[in-house]
Design a protein around this nucleic acid. Structure first.
Lengths: 289, 289
DNA sequence: ACAAAAGTGTTCCAAGTACACCCATGT
DNA sequence: ACATGGGTGTACTTGGAACACTTTTGT
């Protein structure tokens, strides 16, 4: 809608300094699927889902690991801020990016009120990043209780998030509690004993859940794979992200329309050469994100 | 993670006034499914999907319709701000609420840089709200072009959003363009000729898409229906939101596990009495939102 | 020969699609 | 009687699940 003359006069006089404002940051969960080579010449490399974290240089949470993020600059769009931040802080340039969730809890940053707009960033290249470290992600449910009540139910789930590499292991526990009284349902997600700075363990948790959810009905996984891949490689990616084994024959049928065979094969592997595939760009899904 | 002694000393000295901060608002898309009675004594009422909008009292966009929203108060959680805002501005108290998306375009508010955290709010009561008006939502694709290119495709879609009641009709056009070059895909969503204030037409569009998406795999629709309902009423709700007809027998099978029959029936309707159902609180889905 | 992965075929079962049909009611 | 919605059954098709099996390669 166009501004009226009255609006323009109003805007000339407008001053927004009267309201106290929060700080706003963008934080990115940068993920990749990394090949983990084995010594057996026949074995294919396994895939590891990894997140890139930076060790904080300053208080608060000095020396703790955190997501790459920055306070926003009022002259940049949010998406551009994410790209600029990842390029300058860790050297990442080509990646897929989507908005994840906005965290605004009063106590999430001890400095001041900070609204954190989080982003999911996926990369398929192995370009060397700087300033931080990749961590293998291992997330599993350690307990899950469900109790039927008179009118509804209550549920309590504990999830352990373990981020590790050769030198560090970071842990966090995520607790999800759901109360349903037959009429209203309340869901609380809280972090306990996190080794990460701020609420970043929770943001990573949201990112993994988003990735798992979208895996099923979008082509999002291809942002984590090289442009040419074997079907087994694709399957290993699915399995790692979903945390469960898939049956080969069924998997191939299921993703058949999403991919296109190429003329290339991978050889010299001690087993039958495997055909390389690429994403079929004509495949589409009817969902909106 | 716990704060260290160093963190505590740092925080005592911390002043955040050096950074220029944006304003942050919360805006809510309040939706309901309203029965539209007909004069034929046999006919069931149709359902209309409606959104509640307020006429702006001040510049900018004075007299234009807008979503209920407010600048955030640093002493309240975001969700509490939404509840407080909707209670005080329109008198809505019981509703389902989930975060939708955060809009941050530089030019979305002519006053200053405003980060808008939007929420989807659903109500199933017909309580009288004040200060604004309900508008029937009618959204349809008016054109859709898809062109295959050498390596990928490009798509352009125009969607018309029409919001109307007895006294007003508001329109907006949403344009979606997707460019896929086989490697990267960029998607742009822009509004043209919106009769609504700010980018609120776009936010409503996002809300409808979210609702449509979650309809298929969650029990979200029950937040728009009374606690007791007939299966036809439920089906009319699905049809209205999805914008397509469903087959009765199949629909009943599909939602069979989600609902529980009660002992009550609706009579005096000029046709066979219909059994009233309620949501089965034990039904659950494995998805995360 | 054999280990490892590539790739196909078959059977069973669950779920979606389309449609025909009967039931119950107030006017 | 009839219009209207309530409700069931059935035949067909599609897609997932489970599993057995063959092919191809480097060492």
């Amino acid at each position: 809608m166009k501004l009226t003359g009255e609006d323009k006069r109003f805007l000339e006089l407008y001053s927004d300094s009267v309201y106290e404002k929060p700080s706003v940051t963008v934080d990115s969960v940068v993920l990749r699927l990394k090949d983990i080579e084995t010594d057996n010449y026949r074995k294919l490399p396994e895939k590891a889902l990894q997140v890139y974290l930076l060790k904080r240089e300053y208080s608060p949470y000095k020396n703790a690991y955190a997501l790459p993020g920055t306070f926003i600059d009022l002259n940049f769009e949010l998406g551009d801020t994410v790209r600029k931040c990842l390029k300058s802080k860790i050297g990442l340039e080509n990646f897929y990016c989507e908005q994840l969730y906005t965290f605004g809890e009063k106590q999430r940053d001890p400095r001041t009120r900070v609204i954190g707009v989080s982003y999911l960033a996926l990369t398929n290249s192995y370009e060397t990043l700087s300033g931080g470290d990749w961590f293998d992600i291992d997330m599993k449910t350690v307990s899950s209780k469900r109790k039927e009540t008179k009118l509804g139910f209550s549920m309590f789930e504990e999830i352990e998030l373990k981020l590790s590499n050769q030198t560090n292991t970071l842990r966090a526990k995520i607790e999800i509690s759901i109360e349903n009284d037959g009429k209203n349902e309340t869901k609380k997600i809280s972090i306990k004993n996190s080794d990460l700075a701020f609420d970043h363990a929770k943001i990573i948790f949201y990112a993994i859940k988003r990735l798992q959810g979208k895996l099923e009905y979008t082509d999002i996984i291809f942002h984590l794979l090289p442009s040419l891949f074997t079907l087994t490689e694709l399957k290993l990616g699915y399995e790692k992200i979903l945390g469960k084994k898939l049956l080969d024959a069924n998997f191939r049928r299921k993703i058949k329309d999403m991919v296109e065979p190429t003329e290339e094969f991978v050889k010299d592997l001690g087993h039958r050469p495997s055909q390389l595939f690429k994403l079929n760009p004509l495949w589409n899904y009817n969902n909106f994100d």
